[in-house]
Computed example of a mutant assay.
Amino acid sequence: MKNFFAILGGMGTLATESFVHVLNERTPNHSDQDYLNYVLINHATVPDRTAFILGKSEKSPVAALKEDIRQYSTLEPRFFVLTCNTAHHFYDELVETTTTPLLHMPRLAVQAVLKKFADLERPIRVGVLATEGTIQSKVYENELNSYTNIETIIPNQEIQQQVTHLIYRDIKERNFLNQELYFSILDQMIREQQCDVVLLGCTELSLMQESTKNAAYSVIDAQSELVDETIRLALEYRQADS
Rank of each mutant, 00 (worst) to 15 (best):
S18W: 08
L40Y: 13
Y35C: 05
T99M: 10
P106K: 00
P155S: 09
I135L: 10
Y91G: 07
V128E: 00
N24I: 12
T100I: 15
P47R: 02
A130Q: 00
Y72N: 03
L120F: 14
V39R: 12
K56G: 09
N37Y: 02
R125P: 01
N149K: 13
V95M: 03
A63V: 10
L75G: 04
L102H: 07
N37P: 01
F117W: 10
E151N: 13
A109S: 14
S57W: 02
A118Y: 11
S137Y: 01
V39M: 12
T83Y: 01
N24Y: 14
L102E: 04
S60Y: 01
E76S: 14
L23R: 01
V39F: 10
R125G: 04
C84W: 01
N85T: 12
Y72H: 11
R26I: 08
Q157N: 14
P101V: 03
T16Y: 14
A64E: 10
E121M: 11
Y38L: 07
T16F: 13
T86E: 04
I41L: 15
Q111K: 15
K138M: 10
S18P: 02
P77C: 06
L144F: 13
H104L: 03
E158P: 09
H89W: 04
H88S: 03
L75R: 11
V62M: 04
E121L: 12
H30P: 00
T148M: 10
Q111V: 05
P61W: 00
A109Y: 00
V39K: 14
E121V: 09
Y38D: 08
A118D: 12
P77H: 02
T97M: 06
H21D: 13
L54W: 04
E67R: 14
K115G: 02
F79Q: 06
E141G: 11
